[in-house]
Write a protein that binds this DNA or RNA. Structure first.
Lengths: 214, 214
DNA sequence: ATTATTTTCTAACGCTCGGTAGGTCGTACG
DNA sequence: CGTACGACCTACCGAGCGTTAGAAAATAAT
């Protein structure tokens, strides 16, 4: 060490003044997410993307280094959300049912608010590098494991039906949430929060025991 | 009419002898479904597909007319299933709950048994021609409408919770089923039928009223 | 007004893709 | 034996792709 980041530390004076590059960066990010959602990563050309933000395709390289970087940025946005959600899982109090419903609510609200990003996250994973895929899968597995733990705790507490296969049950509730990006449209009548409230409630209901069972 | 199918009726002699072309056709269909599932349609080259069936890419055109034909064949396989499932919806007897659970079971079993096809059906719809997309969307809408009708009937009969938004509720149960292709692996311990039984039961449970509600 | 810097464009590159044309080889049939 | 056909291959085309280099234009600094 010692010579590291020598170049990037040069003149660390604060970048005042809103640089145009930053707003363009956001434009490009959002347009890319929308196009990847609409046509898929491979079927979206940089020509398409450049046109969507009012540039020529060569000019995009002033902002990005490669096409894959765009997919990485979008995917990582969702990835960081799930890391955080999983970490906060244990911090929250309440019964297993309450904790589970709260986590699913947050998950569902994110899925609706960022349905472009979520769709790309789930549809384009095979396109990512193997190393990054492994990190994502590890995060997903940890998330699912924490949900399974909640289901089993709820079963022991009698909140959830005892005859459920916790693995299958978690796949079920996750499907309810992760399917949102297939039908959600921002111009609809229900807000992301309202959708998240209804779906997370329906999800935990699918785990409850039937009181009239025999 | 009268001149219709004049050309196709010429020499209707039966094609005896198992033509090699037919087994190859099936090989190509299945390999294409698997590759589209694994890498996506746009990211799958005909080179990849040819290699997967032990041919050179030019030879594929002995069996197909274009790459899009492959996606159409795969998509239409799922499409025809949903058409049939919707048509059989009213034919079946029983309470709304029983009918709904039976439909979801069939849907779920198909989704697991043909998860390659199902994944392509949902992920690659934007790739299809506009005219065919419209037919698929119409079929899907009819299917969802018949499910919503069952939910509302069940609500009137007291089988389902009265405070459910039938549209949201149907999206929820469909998500549980349509998510199967994201996690199902044929080498797992549960068969498609077992998965379909558990998930369709969990789905209808998510609609039931809580008896201890207040 | 002149110079620096940031942003965009033009023009081209190497490559891969889907698709085509024509030939080759084996097998079955007359 | 020969010929007809099914199955496959080789070689190629044009187009579009991601990416690069360098000039031009716009904007800011001096």
């Amino acid at each position: 060490m010692g010579h590291v980041s020598e170049t990037s530390r040069e003149w660390p004076r604060p970048k005042i003044r809103p640089r145009k590059a930053e707003v363009r960066n956001d434009q490009i990010f959002e347009a890319a997410a929308r196009l990847f959602y609409e046509k898929g990563y491979a079927a979206t050309s940089l020509q398409d993307l450049a046109g969507a933000v009012g540039l020529k395709k060569g000019s995009l390289y002033y902002y990005i280094d490669s096409k894959k970087d765009l997919l990485f940025a979008i995917t990582d946005y969702a990835h960081r959300f799930f890391v955080e959600l999983t970490e906060n899982a244990k911090a929250e109090g309440g019964t297993p049912l309450q904790t589970l419903e709260r986590m699913l609510f947050q998950h569902a609200r994110f899925a609706a608010e960022h349905f472009h990003v979520t769709a790309a996250f789930y549809n384009e994973r095979p396109t990512l590098s193997d190393a990054y895929q492994e990190r994502i899968v590890a995060t997903r597995d940890a998330y699912e494991a924490s949900l399974r733990r909640l289901v089993r705790s709820g079963q022991e507490a009698g909140e959830f039906a005892a005859d459920l296969d916790s693995r299958l049950a978690v796949f079920g509730v996750l499907g309810m949430i992760n399917w949102i990006h297939q039908w959600y449209r921002p111009e609809g009548t229900l807000s992301p929060s309202e959708i998240a409230t209804a779906l997370s409630r329906q999800a935990v209901r699918s785990l409850m025991p039937r009181t009239d069972a025999g």
